[in-house]
Amino acid sequence: MFFHIVLERNMQLHPRHFGRDLREKLVSKLMKDVEGTCSGRHGFVVAITGIENVGKGLIRDGTGFVTFPVKYQCVVFRPFKGEILEAVVTMVNKMGFFAEAGPVQIFVSNHLIPDDMEFQSGDMPNYTTSDGSVKIQKDSEVRLKIIGTRVDATEIFCIGTIKDDFLGVISDPATAS
């Protein structure tokens, strides 16, 4: 799920940037530092959408660096238990499969793949129904439900299921009709 929130960060800036485009320098550094990172607390920072406020700078003794407290608006992405996500399958093995929804990695164990889908080993491992009409393999797109999330300082990992109504493959050409 996406959220639009305000976060705060202390930005250290080198004295060489002190000029009339100081603010732009501060913002571009902020984007570089923050966008695409994952904070365990808030999820993934997808994009900075605005600067709320740049506080008074504090000059560091000895170095000349200045620390600015910057409040900024950003869109963050954080998955929740029970949430339905669409994800791309990245790896299939006899244990189940891994999928990615943006920066989030999700594992779907074979316990949570419908019973009529069986693992087929080979060069392109996959889960397939006995009539061959539905197949999950690398690069398939699936709709899944998150049943567990683990949020660490730098990554979010989820356990998902496709063993429920309206879940499963959404992109396989064989099923599209």
């Binding site: 238990k81 164990s109 998150i146 567990g148």
Partner: peptide, 15 residues
């Protein structure tokens, strides 16, 4: 709880 991945049960998602 047949297995644990990333600190969660692979079947029920429990920590």
């Amino acid at each position: 709880h047949p297995g644990v991945m990333g600190g969660m049960c692979i079947q029920c998602g429990q920590k």
